[in-house]
């Protein structure tokens, strides 16, 4: 009995391992972190730097072979009118999708964070996540059918005798087209639908962290609901909005499938990368294109930080 006064008497190889790790907490952290760190460092960052390195090479126009010499020539090619158009088009689309997603997500997320309890919270999570459970391609092709000239949306406009409205809209240059499924509006709608959960969830998470008393205090000090939103709720939820916008913005910047299935024939960055690295065999230009979203996101986050978007973190 006396020798068991301190030790409970449990033993075995796993217990001994636990004991050893308990005495050496640093080893535990090392063991836990090494595999993911290797994964991140070698496979993820490594390939990213390999890509970056490729962008500083160029292609020999005559032979079509890659010249392994440092040059900024490939980056220069990005600024030819055709390529620069692709960049501008993609950035405008990504920005539009992000803004629209934030506008739609905020009320949903606010409701979920503030009012939904128990069963309704489950309904909210299910409603937001359910679209993520089905294949991305299935969703995009479904949208193509919905937006097509023979699709349900057209049919709906027709039976409501509002076809003229849709036609007037499609007649607008740039955003219109023959039908919604071959217009940029169609591309925009599908992007918005597919990325929306990635905006709703971070905003909801950030709103959950804003205590009700914060809004009450604002109202108590004379702020009407609009002012409370502007000066308290939005600044406090901003990290969530920024997190969501990182998802929607970068996912739109890099996607090459949606604009290929729904939209006009004019290309986005993702499609450019896809075609340059594939059939065209111009890896350096594909790499240079791939660097554009990274630079844009870097600048975006830097500006957001400068503007104090993360002060509430």
């Amino acid at each position: 009995m006396s020798d068991l006064s301190l030790h409970t008497g449990r033993s075995g190889p796993l217990t001994r391992l636990s004991d050893w790790l308990w005495r050496n907490p640093r080893m535990l952290i090392l063991l836990l972190l090494t595999p993911p760190a290797l994964w991140l460092g070698i496979i993820y960052l490594g390939s990213l730097f390999a890509l970056l390195a490729q962008s500083f090479f160029s292609i020999d126009e005559f032979s079509g072979l890659i010249v392994y010499e440092f040059t900024l020539k490939t980056y220069g090619e990005l600024f030819t009118p055709a390529n620069f158009d692709i960049i501008v088009r993609t950035v405008v689309m990504a920005a539009a999708v992000t803004v629209a997603a934030a506008l739609i997500s905020f009320p949903i997320a606010y409701y979920a964070a503030r009012y939904a309890k128990g069963k309704w919270k489950a309904v909210f999570y299910l409603g937001v996540m359910l679209p993520l459970w089905s294949s991305y391609l299935v969703k995009v092709y479904s949208w193509k059918l919905i937006l097509a000239k023979e699709g349900i949306l057209n049919w709906l406009f027709e039976i409501l005798h509002m076809k003229w409205l849709l036609e007037a809209y499609l007649a607008i240059p740039v955003i219109g087209g023959n039908s919604l499924s071959v217009s940029w509006t169609g591309t925009f709608l599908v992007f918005l639908y597919v990325w929306l959960p990635f905006m709703v969830l971070p905003i909801q998470a950030s709103l959950e962290r804003v205590p009700t008393s914060m809004l009450e205090a604002s109202g108590d000090l004379g702020a009407n609901p609009g002012q409370s939103f502007r000066y308290v709720l939005l600044p406090l939820a901003l990290p969530g909005v920024i997190a969501g916008s990182i998802f929607t913005f970068s996912l739109t910047l890099g996607d090459y499938i949606i604009p290929q299935i729904v939209g006009s024939s004019r290309r986005f960055i993702g499609q450019a990368v896809y075609s340059y690295q594939g059939t065209a065999g111009n890896i350096p230009l594909a790499a240079a294109f791939a660097v554009v979203p990274i630079v844009i996101m870097g600048v975006y986050l830097w500006v957001a930080k400068r503007k104090g978007a993360f002060d509430a973190l």
Partner: peptide, 18 residues
């Protein structure tokens, strides 16, 4: 509340962190 000449000191203080 925003039209009342009444102000509150909250239990959790509710200071704006930003």
């Amino acid at each position: 509340p925003y039209k009342r000449h009444v102000n509150t000191v909250f239990q959790d203080y509710a200071l704006f962190p930003h």
